[in-house]
Structures are given as structure tokens and as C-alpha cells.
Design a protein around this nucleic acid. Structure first.
Lengths: 231, 231
DNA sequence: AGTAAAAAATGATATTAATCAGCTTTAAAA
DNA sequence: TTTTAAAGCTGATTAATATCATTTTTTACT
């Protein structure tokens, strides 16, 4: 039990449920065993930070269970959510290579199980394991492409269109579950004011696109969303 | 002389002016000689495309001289400029690793000298030359961080603030030269309507922040811009 | 140099979305 | 279980910026 109230349980890489979808997926048993030795795992409560903007990275986080928001803060401290990570994702590896401090913060959105791999160990693996390295490079590249689209959406789409787009992304992130975010977080993902977001959610509900179960959202007409988002 | 009107001159890597600032900078003479063999160089006129969105990459471009805009198109075909590359930059390497088609287009903003290195050759070098590879990974990572900030700016800053921010970036890109972009391109970089941009430029001029020499812009009060951009 | 086309600039108007203020419901804590 | 706080919601108003229409200037072409 640490000061941050994380209870350290052991999560075994060989049997980790996230492994099949993770970047570590294609590594041979040998390497997985190696990761297993080097990592430390922890249970995180809701709304706990993994790292914050402008600090220097000590390693990467492997999200075993739960959701984590990745966000930047604007000049007035308002959060802009860049990405919502789900189980299986590696978080914070960008700053391993850039030589810069973090440009974003990461914080849990719900209870999470997260493993930590130190910078040295991680970079060693990247250096020696070409498969893992290529996976990481592929991921960096994909995200870079996604962000070009994100920027274009922010610049050219209306809030309504962006909300549709955001809900489609969140539909994938939350998969079979219902989307479970505060209105404020959702607004900070879409890039709008909370009040505006609430009004639009109501519209979407009245148009039969979503159902609202207090704070949880259920998509009931994905086609309409796709059409609205302009795809 | 090709159909695309590029006259093929030989540009020598060993003596290339861009080399000192390029990712290829730290490579030993051996590797530079290798690049020299594998590349083909061409002269590009203004407004020629290097590649377009959704097509598949055949290699990377090394910008020897000139400026190139990297942009995505929104649903209505409007360009959103993501980045303006200057001499020394390698263009289009993201798509080498992602396995996806290009998510952005690239087009010259002025007369350019550009070398091309085929995918096979490039990936070979990445695989065998750790220094180059690390440089590329660093670059991917830096850009990813920059884009998080870009997204946040688009979401939270006013057009006026974004213009200030854009001019600061362009001040670096154009270095000692004056900023030389059409109003439309500048608007598409800031993410606003051309008319709005023109009005704001006038304001900036009246406030003694910039000088307008027909289409070229000169920054005369960088401190004010820094303050306006919120840094 | 003279003409056509593209880019830049201006004015008027419309629209979107932010802001402000107050109210209600839900969740958390004592 | 009562109280308090946080989150969610609603309405009115304002401000920022897009859009549309037109004119002027600059650039490119013959």
C-alpha cells in the first residue's frame, strides 16, 4: 500500500487478458517473461494521475484493465482530452523517445489495473526486439495520422458534427459497455462548453440517436452518427 | 524532363546544404554515400504535389531547398494545413511505418529541390542504422506532442490567439525571410475563414505587430505575439 | 503594355456557440 | 437519513466568427 493508495497486486503477463490486444502480443514467450520480471503492477482508483504535463517520464504504463484519459491543459487550465485509452494500450511511450517532458497528462477515469515498466528496461527492449520496436513505430505513426484528422475536425466541423465523431470513437473504446464519462469530460473531448454539449446530447436523444441513462450513454443509431460525422 | 516538369539535377548528399540540419546529419560518411546512391533528385515548381491523401507511399522525400505544406482535406474539400516543412526536413515518413495510406497531402509552396528515397531503401536504412532510426523515432514523438498542443489550441484559443501562434511558428519556418503565403493558405493554417484572417492581419498591422508588404508578412513585434499567443 | 484571372480587401448580415445566472437532480459524506 | 456538494440541466444574452456580396489590387499571361 503506497501513499497514493495503490495496492500492488501481481499481474502475470503470460496470462494477462490485455496481452492479446497489446503491442506486446507478438513477442515470444521469452520476452514476455522478461517484461514480467521488470514490471511492477498497481491498482488505481478513479481519478488518479499517472503522469502530468511538463514532468519527465520514468517509464511507460501498460493499461491492463480500465480507461485512462490523455489530455492537455490550455492556458486557462481547461482540459482538452486527446485520447481515451482502454485495456491493452501502452501509455506514455511518446515521451520515451522525444527527450522532452510530457506534453500531456494521463489520469484514470475508473478503477484500473496498470503495470509500469521503467525507462531503461523499456528502451532496452525496444533496442533489442525489432518486432516490438516496429509495433511501437507503427503505433506512433498511426496516432500521428489520427491527430491530423483530429485537428482538421476541430478546425472545420461544427460542434454537432464533432460530437457525432466523438461518440463513434467512444463507442469503440467502451465497446459493449455504455459510454461512461462526465458531461464535462465529454465536452472536453469534443472541444466545447459543457452547456452546449448537454443541449446537443438532448437533441441527439430526441432524434433517436442515443439513449441517456443518467450519466451513461448508449448509441442506438450508429448509422445516423456516421452520417452526421460526415463519413 | 518528366511529364511532371521536374528537371532532374543531381544534388550531392555530401555537400548538401540541408544536411547539417537534417536527420541524416549524424550519419557517418558511409551511410551518406549510400543515401547518395539510392536517391533521385528533382526540381519542383510552385504548387506541385508530392503525394496526396489516401494514396499509398512509395518512399520518403528529403526537402533540400524550399517550403512544402502538409495538409488534410475536410469533408467540403477545404484544406487544413498541419505543418509547413522547410529545407532539411524529411517528408512522408509517417506512412512508411503505419501500413496505412497517407492521411495528409503534401504540396510545394515555392520552387523546391527535393530528393526521393524509395521505401525499400529507406526501411533498410532504418533497420540497420540505429542512429537514424532513433532520430526518426524522436521526430515522430516530437510531432505527436506538437499535435496535442495544436488540437488544444484549435479547441480553446480564439482565432486572434491562433493567428499569433501561427505567425510565431511561421517566423521560425521562414527564418530570416518574410512570411510568404497566400491569405487562403494562412487562413487554412490558422483554421479560419480567409475574410476573418484578412481582417485580423489588418488589426495586427494597426497594432504595430506586423508589417504587410503586399503578400509578404514581416513580424516587427515578436514579444507582443508571444503575449497574444498566451505563452 | 494590355488584358484576364486570381488574390486581397471591405461591408453587411446571419449563425453558432460561449457565457452568465439560476435551478434541479444525483451522488457522496457526515 | 439528513445534509452538502457535485454534476446535470435550462433559459436568456452576448460575442465571435462565418457567410455572402461586391470592389479593388496584384499577378500572370498573350
Amino acid at each position: 500500500m503506497t501513499m497514493l493508495d495503490k495496492s500492488h497486486k501481481h499481474v502475470n503477463c503470460q496470462t494477462c487478458g490485455a496481452r492479446k490486444t497489446s503491442l506486446f502480443a507478438n513477442n515470444c514467450e521469452n520476452d514476455v517473461a522478461l517484461v514480467d520480471e521488470q514490471k511492477s503492477c498497481a491498482f488505481y482508483k478513479k481519478n488518479q494521475p499517472l503522469f502530468i504535463e511538463n514532468s519527465f517520464p520514468r517509464g511507460v504504463f501498460c493499461l491492463n484493465q480500465g480507461k485512462v484519459k490523455i489530455f492537455a491543459r490550455g492556458d486557462e487550465g481547461k482540459e482538452q482530452i486527446i485520447h481515451i485509452a482502454k485495456e491493452g494500450e501502452i501509455i506514455g511511450f511518446r515521451a520515451m523517445f522525444s527527450g522532452e517532458p510530457y506534453k500531456v497528462s494521463a489520469s484514470t477515469l475508473e478503477e484500473c489495473n496498470i503495470c509500469f515498466i521503467g525507462k531503461e528496461d523499456f528502451l532496452n527492449m525496444i533496442e533489442t526486439n525489432a518486432t516490438l520496436r516496429n509495433g511501437i513505430m507503427k503505433e506512433l505513426s498511426k496516432e500521428l495520422g489520427d491527430r491530423a484528422i483530429f485537428i482538421t475536425n476541430m478546425a472545420q466541423k461544427s460542434v454537432r458534427e464533432r460530437l457525432a465523431f466523438a461518440l463513434l470513437i467512444l463507442g469503440d473504446v467502451y465497446d459493449k459497455e455504455e459510454i461512461n464519462l462526465t458531461r464535462e469530460d465529454l465536452a472536453n473531448f469534443v472541444g466545447t462548453a459543457t452547456e452546449t454539449l448537454i443541449r446537443l446530447l438532448k437533441d441527439f436523444k430526441e432524434e433517436g440517436i442515443i439513449e441517456i441513462h443518467t450519466r451513461k450513454l448508449e448509441i442506438i443509431n450508429k448509422d445516423k452518427l456516421l452520417h452526421l460525422a460526415g463519413k
